[in-house]
Simulated assay, not measured.
Amino acid sequence: MSLYSFFGCLFLAYGPILSIFFLYIARNAQYVLLMVSSVAIQEIFRWGFFRILSLSGFGYALMSCLVSYISLLVESLGPGVKMCQSCPGLSLFFVSAINTTIFSLLHMAWMMVAFEGFSSYKTKSGMLQITWVIFSHYGASYATLFNASDIHLGCVYSALIGVVILAISCAWIAYGLKSRNYINRHTN
C-alpha cells in the first residue's frame, strides 16, 4: 500500500507544477534556462530577480516543492504510515502533498504580485502589494502549524488559509492585468 501512497502523493504534490512546466515552459529552451537560473533565497532576492528575470516565480515554486517535500515523499515508501496529528484520518504524506501543491501555486502568484509592486513601489498600491506578499507568505507558512496541532481538522484550516491567500493573490493579478488592458489586447 505504501507504493500507492507514494505515487498518489507524488502526483498530488508535483502534478500542477510539472503540468505547467511541460505545457508552457519546456516548449522553449530560453524559458527553461530562465527558470533554472532563478533559484535563490526567496523574499530577499525577489527584487533582484524583478530587474533580471520574468519566469523566476516558477523557479521559486519548483525549488520550494523540491526542498520542502522530497524527503517526506521518500519516507512514504517505508513500512507504515505517519498520520497527521490534527486530522488523524489522513496521512502526513497526503496532507503535506496538498500543502506542497498550494505553496507551489502561491510562489508563482506571489512573484507576479511582487513584481507588480516592485514596478510601482513608489505608489501606495505598489507598497501594498509588496506588503501583501511578505505578510501573506508569513501567514500561509504559519498556517501549516495547524497540521501538527491538537486542533480538530487543523489540516483543513491550514489548506483553507492557503487557498484563500491564493485566491486573493490571483484576484490581484487578474485586476492588474485587466487594469493594464493586457487581457483585452491578448484575447482578441
Rank of each mutant, 00 (worst) to 15 (best):
Y4H: 09
C9D: 09
C9W: 04
L10M: 14
L10C: 14
L12A: 15
Y14S: 01
G15L: 10
I20M: 11
F22V: 10
L23M: 14
R27E: 07
N28L: 09
Q30M: 05
Q30G: 06
L33W: 05
L34C: 00
M35N: 06
S38C: 07
A40G: 11
I44N: 06
F45H: 09
F45D: 12
R46T: 11
W47M: 09
L53N: 15
S54Q: 13
L55I: 12
S56E: 12
S56Q: 13
F58L: 10
Y60E: 07
A61M: 10
S64E: 03
I70R: 02
S71M: 11
L77C: 06
G80F: 01
G80A: 06
K82G: 01
K82D: 08
S86P: 03
P88I: 04
G89R: 07
S91C: 06
L92E: 07
L92F: 10
V95A: 07
V95Y: 08
S96Q: 10
S96M: 14
A97G: 05
T100S: 02
T100N: 02
M108V: 09
W110T: 03
M111E: 11
M112V: 13
V113T: 13
F115L: 10
F118Q: 12
F118G: 10
K124Q: 07
S125R: 15
S125P: 02
T131F: 08
H137N: 09
H137I: 03
H137V: 02
H137D: 02
Y138V: 10
Y138A: 07
Y142G: 07
T144F: 00
N147Y: 06
A148V: 04
S149L: 02
D150K: 11
D150W: 04
